[in-house]
Amino acid sequence: MKIAVVCANGKAGSLIVREAVERGLDVTAVVRSENQSATQQVIQKDLFHLKASDLTGFDVVIDAFGTWTLETLPQHSTSLNHLCNILSGQDTRLLVVGGAGSLYVNPEHTAQVMDGVDFPAEFKPLASHMGKALEDLRTRNDVKWTYISPAGDFQPDGAKTGKYILGGEELVRNAKGESVISYADYAIAVVDEAVKGNHIQQRISVVAE
């Protein structure tokens, strides 16, 4: 299996690369600057400059793009749209490192995590833009995409336990009543999905056991 990880130098991207390499998968890092990930196979190119030919031959492309400044937040949509355009009509699957703010908190799917009164105001713009990117993605029937939302508490330096619970469109809590997952365990879930490919054109979510 050949996997490309876009934005492989980032915190999530680098852990996904490491997890895939440790499993013996054929992994290529797509990076804008010097490669700092665990694979030696590299495409050094800005995401927005990628062409269809750059991603030919990959079974899975994992999009680990993320940005946090107000000026760049719209790039969550534009970057994902660009990747969809160059993968349109291909067998290559696209896995997207998503956000938790757009997860639903009721069975009717009318209320999202980001709508809650306790949701931090400083994260609302990010959650809104990531939510819009997901809504745009849902319209793409020409791409074999899977959007993977983390738990509400997404911990960059959390422990790697190797265990997680797979959910769907709604926020899932574990037996302790917590919605939490480490980046390391999230990386395991992403690589599991890359290998299995069970959720084409679906949003799934993951939470620590």
Results as ranks from 00 to 15, higher is better:
Ser205Leu: 06
Val105Gln: 00
Gly197Val: 11
Gly89Glu: 04
Lys144Pro: 02
Thr139Tyr: 00
Ile43Thr: 04
Leu25Thr: 05
Phe58Trp: 12
Gln202Ile: 06
Asn106Cys: 00
Val42Asn: 05
Gly116Val: 10
Val195Met: 12
Leu47Glu: 02
Ala111Arg: 14
Thr56Arg: 12
Val30Gln: 00
Ile200Lys: 08
Ser33Thr: 13
Val61Gln: 01
Arg138Met: 12
Leu95Cys: 04
His76Tyr: 14
Asp142Glu: 13
Ser14Glu: 04
His129Phe: 12
Ala133Lys: 06
Arg140Asp: 06
Val60Gly: 01
Val60Thr: 11
Leu83Tyr: 13
Gly158Tyr: 11
Ala64Asn: 09
Gly24Arg: 07
Lys51Tyr: 04
Arg138Ala: 10
Phe58Glu: 01
Val5His: 03
Trp145Leu: 06
Gly101Leu: 02
Asp26Lys: 09
Ser53Leu: 11
Val113Ile: 12
Val5Leu: 01
Val195His: 08
Ala29Val: 03
Val195Leu: 13
Glu34Cys: 05
Ser77Thr: 11
Ala208Thr: 12
Glu135Cys: 01
Glu108Val: 01
Ala159Tyr: 12
Pro150Ala: 09
Ala38His: 06
Asp136Arg: 10
Ile86Glu: 01
Ile16Ser: 05
Ala151Phe: 02
Arg173Cys: 11
Tyr183Val: 15
Asn81Trp: 05
Thr110His: 02
Ala194Leu: 10
Ile181Pro: 07
Ala38Leu: 07
Gln36Tyr: 08
Ile86Asn: 01
Leu70His: 08
Gly152Pro: 04
Val190Ser: 05
His109Tyr: 06
Phe65Lys: 02
Pro107His: 02
Leu55Tyr: 14
Gln155Val: 15
Asn9Thr: 05
Ser182Val: 13
Lys163Asn: 13
Val190Tyr: 12
Tyr147Asn: 08
Glu178Met: 10
Ala187Met: 13
Leu25Ser: 08
Val61Ile: 12
Leu80Arg: 15
Leu73Trp: 05
Ile62Met: 03
Val143His: 05
Thr146Gly: 02
Tyr186Phe: 15
Ala151Asn: 04
Glu170Ala: 06
Ile148Asn: 01
Thr67Gln: 14
His199Ala: 12
Ile43Gly: 02
Asp157Gly: 10
Gly177Gln: 06
His49Ser: 15
Ser79Asn: 13
Val207Cys: 04
Asp59Ile: 09
Thr146Val: 07
Glu122Asn: 14
Ala127Asn: 08
Gly177Pro: 07
Leu73Met: 12
Glu19Ile: 03
Gln90Thr: 15
Ser88Asn: 06
Phe154Pro: 08
Ile148Val: 15
Val143Trp: 07
Leu25Ile: 08
Phe58Ile: 00
Ser179Arg: 03
Thr78Leu: 07
Gly116Tyr: 11
Ser179Trp: 00
Lys163Leu: 14
Val21Glu: 08
Asn85Trp: 02
His199Cys: 11
Glu169Lys: 06
Arg173Gln: 13
Asp142Cys: 07
Glu169Asp: 14
Arg32Asn: 10
Leu47Trp: 03
Asn174Thr: 10
Leu94Tyr: 06
Val17Gly: 07
Ile204Asp: 00
Glu122Trp: 07
Leu94Cys: 06
Phe48Asp: 14
Leu50Ala: 03
Met1His: 09
Val31Leu: 04
Ala121Met: 14
His49Leu: 15
Gly98Arg: 04
Gly13Thr: 00
Asn198Pro: 04
Asp26Glu: 14
Ala151Arg: 02
His82Glu: 09
Leu25Phe: 13
Ala133Asp: 10
Ala133Cys: 07
Ala4Asp: 04
Gln36Leu: 15
Asn141Arg: 09
Leu47Lys: 00
Leu171Ile: 02
Asp115Pro: 03
